[in-house]
């Protein structure tokens, strides 16, 4: 299997941006995971902090790791249009120049923290593009009490992603960013991605994760799986859970799990 670093000018972002790609032996015929990083990361972090390439090689899966900046993987109200880049511009480029697939049956999406929210949001807004979603250590993040206007806004999510004024917040939240509204808006006959969520019991986002899991589990049609385990909001947890997620996705019983880390 191969690995490449891509640097390209994105017309959508109006920025020279980078992408890390793990390529399966036959990229056009293999599953392709769009894997999203967290708020303090960039496109290289999954590769550096976990053994994701080793796990992907075992299953013959390609992995595309873009740079999402601090966008929550949205078309920011005040900032770059990362959603449009990830759903249209980047897959077109990857298909045309690297032969990666764009079909739903070969595409799935996952992420940690900010990327977990991004994976859920993009997967549920574009169910015709992804057959599965993985969300690690996250939930309906932008609507969690922790990030309400009036509190501090360390990543600029309130002012830049949501486009609200921190000092003068609007009373109505934008449904485009509310995972529960997005879920409710999916037509009953749409293809639903199957969803996998996981969170560590010592994670400060545990509450956000549980609230989100309850709502997703309550949906009558959405295939949904939720797991909690020991661990916190850190790379030990995410290295374990990208492994567990790939086991689950490929429906394999614990082939990659090592007992010493479980």
């Amino acid at each position: 299997m191969s690995y490449l670093q891509l640097s390209l000018y994105s017309e959508t972002l109006r920025l020279e941006t980078t992408v890390q790609v793990i390529l399966a032996a036959d990229p056009a015929a293999s599953p392709c995971l769009l894997l999203l990083h967290g708020a303090s990361d960039d496109d290289t972090m999954w590769l550096r902090r976990t053994s994701v390439e080793r796990y992907a090689d075992r299953y013959g899966i390609s992995v595309v790791m873009p740079n999402g900046y601090r966008s929550c993987y949205t078309d920011m109200r005040r900032g770059p249009a990362v959603e449009t880049y990830l759903i249209h511009e980047l897959p077109d480029f990857l298909r045309r120049h690297l032969g990666l697939p764009t079909s739903r049956e070969l595409n799935f999406i996952a992420g940690l923290s900010m990327g977990g929210y991004g994976a859920l949001r993009l997967g549920l807004r574009h169910p015709e593009r992804f057959n599965a979603i993985g969300c690690f250590s996250s939930g309906n993040l932008l609507f969690d009490p922790m990030f309400r206007p009036g509190t501090s806004d360390p990543y600029g999510w309130v002012s830049l992603v949501l486009g609200e004024d921190v000092d003068n917040p609007s009373s109505k939240r934008d449904p485009d960013f509310d995972l529960f509204e997005i879920l409710a808006a999916i037509p009953a006959d749409a293809p639903f991605p199957r969803v996998y969520m996981a969170c560590g019991r010592d994670d400060y986002l545990l509450n956000c994760s549980r609230i989100t899991a309850e709502r997703l589990a309550a949906h009558p049609t959405l295939p949904f799986y939720y797991e909690e385990s020991h661990g916190a909001h850190d790379w030990n947890f995410w290295d374990r859970y990208i492994k567990h997620f790939l086991d689950w996705y490929t429906d394999t019983e614990k082939t990659l799990t090592e007992t010493t880390t479980d």
Binding site: S2, Y3, L4, Q5, L6, S7, L8, Y9, F93, H97, L98
Partner: peptide, 8 residues
């Protein structure tokens, strides 16, 4: 677009 491609 710049690609650095690694393979065996």
């Amino acid at each position: 677009a710049n690609i650095v491609f690694y393979s065996l």
